[in-house]
């Protein structure tokens, strides 16, 4: 018999925030790796910075992943694996970001599938190859996913900070 757990909306919010951060870090890793392929061989400061960025993003991604594992016991399995949450606003933010990510991936994949080996496209993205273009698409998709989550959640916090009535402990609405 499945064990039922009481899920706090704040826990779901925190888990989604970590997921957003992981997406942004993965995007940083993917873009840094692409960029390092261009500057490879040149013993420059840029190369050193890119190596440092790659290393830092891997470490930060591991830290965030370990942190996110702690939520497995505190949120539903659907929430943990598919980002489907009980709290409506958190679920709304999650769905909107997944929808945007899905559209980017589908449109990008269709474009690459039909035009990926066209000469004009190959010349356009040079010195990158098709594999790099796919990596770029993936980077764009995860960056959008993470940025939308963090932006939407942060935007609300920002608005609440701006309009927060400390005496009453509530948001003030501008009439």
């Amino acid at each position: 018999m499945a064990k039922s757990i009481t899920v706090l909306p704040e826990t779901e919010h925190e888990y989604l925030t970590i997921t957003g951060k992981i997406s942004v870090v993965i995007a940083v890793f993917l873009f840094a790796q692409l960029w390092s392929e261009i500057v490879t061989g040149t013993d420059s400061v840029v190369n050193w910075i890119l190596d440092l960025t790659l290393f830092a993003s891997v470490i930060y991604c591991i830290v965030l992943s370990v942190k996110s594992m702690k939520f497995a016991k505190h949120i539903t399995r659907m929430g943990y694996w598919t980002l489907k949450f009980n709290d409506e606003y958190v679920d709304h933010v999650s769905s909107a970001s997944l929808r945007a990510t899905c559209h980017i991936m589908v449109v990008g994949a269709i474009f690459l599938a039909y035009s990926g080996d066209n000469r004009w496209f190959v010349e356009l993205i040079a010195p990158f190859g098709l594999r790099d273009a796919i990596q770029m698409l993936l980077g764009l998709a995860v960056a959008t996913h993470g940025a939308l989550i963090l932006w939407n959640l942060r935007e609300e916090e920002h608005r609440e900070e701006e309009h927060f009535d400390e005496e009453r402990g509530e948001e003030v609405i501008d009439e």
Partner: peptide, 14 residues
Amino acid sequence: VSRKTISTVETGRF
């Protein structure tokens, strides 16, 4: 629900 849900419903954003 979360306070964010109430806040966004109340202001018509959600």
